[in-house]
């Protein structure tokens, strides 16, 4: 608490690197929610490379491999892969619902806490959405939203808190399982890129 009066009416400025983070979250949210169509695969394949300095190449390399995989992927096969591995509440080979990775029992309590937190942020499930809120894609969408709220102290702390509570301990087991599955091919690269990105997020939010 700084105690300084922050005018809330000021326009939200989003720095280029935060804009990039928001877009990465949007992309990850999209890829974890459903298999990509040809348009998205082409867009990934044709996007510019990421440039990294020195020893910090993990994210850029994961991106390069995802691009190569996207260039070679057949959307129908990718959709089959996604359905075979990630679809089905409780019975999917790999569950995309993070509460499974956060607690042994009492998954509902995580959901209730998450639901409350999202309600506080003014977010929630709407209309015909039936997926529980702890779907990894939904968390990516929340992070995208939070990054768009600007980079003030309170906003950054909110990002850090949300990431720490719901994503930080879940992304490694989730992405490791997808990578290890005998049924995944394209999604191994999605998982590796997700892991590399979340590693960066964890490290950068930890600097706050």
């Amino acid at each position: 608490m700084t105690g300084e009066a922050t005018p809330h009416a000021a326009p939200v400025e989003v720095a280029p690197e935060d804009q990039a983070r928001a877009e990465f979250y949007a992309l990850l949210g999209r890829l974890w929610y459903a298999a990509p169509d040809q348009v998205l695969l082409d867009a990934i394949a044709n996007a510019p490379p990421l440039t990294a300095e020195g020893a910090h190449g993990a994210l850029a390399e994961a991106w390069r491999q995802l691009q190569a995989a996207a260039a070679a992927a057949d959307p129908a096969a990718v959709a089959d892969e996604y359905d075979a591995v990630l679809v089905g509440v409780g019975k999917a080979e790999v569950t995309p619902y993070v509460s499974h990775y956060l607690v042994e029992t009492g998954r509902e309590r995580v959901l209730v806490a998450l639901r409350d937190e999202m309600a506080e942020l003014g977010l929630g499930r709407v209309g015909a959405t039936h997926e529980p809120e702890d779907h990894f894609a939904a968390l990516c969408e929340v992070m995208r939203h939070l990054v768009g709220e600007g980079a003030g102290d309170a906003a950054m702390q909110q990002q850090k808190n949300f990431f720490t509570r719901y994503m930080n301990r879940a992304y490694n087991p989730l992405t490791d399982q997808v990578t290890a599955s005998s049924k995944t091919s394209f999604y191994k690269h999605v998982a590796r890129f997700t892991k590399a990105f979340c590693d960066v997020e964890a490290a950068s939010l930890d600097m706050l």
Partner: peptide, 30 residues
Amino acid sequence: RTSRRNFLLAVGAGGAATVAAIGAKTLPQA
């Protein structure tokens, strides 16, 4: 802020052009 920004740029996560190229075309925006 500066060290966080430098870190993001060093790892490539500041690659706004990269994801913007995808975002504009294919991603749903709230």
